[in-house]
């Protein structure tokens, strides 16, 4: 089954950042970040994506990949 994989955990590890710290920076709750990190999110707002890319200094393509 094709799916979108979120690479938030590896991006956080590379930057030595915790989920709590990221949640404070982007203004998204820990719970929602965990949902995103564990690939349980069904949709993401552009505003959340922009905030994540700003906080992690990355591109949307670094955060997500498509698995056919």
């Amino acid at each position: 089954m094709p799916e979108i994989i979120c690479h938030l955990d590896s991006l956080l590890a590379e930057r030595g950042m915790s989920v709590v710290e990221l949640s404070e920076r982007v203004g998204v709750t820990n719970v929602n970040l965990s949902i995103l990190k564990n690939n349980r999110a069904r949709a993401i707002r552009f505003s959340t994506l922009i905030a994540l890319c700003e906080a992690l200094d990355c591109q949307p393509g670094d955060l997500f990949s498509f698995t056919p």
Binding site: G27, R45, S47, T48, A51
Partner: peptide, 8 residues
């Protein structure tokens, strides 16, 4: 940027 979830 304010993207906090509104507290219900």
């Amino acid at each position: 940027m304010e993207n906090a979830d509104p507290t219900p």
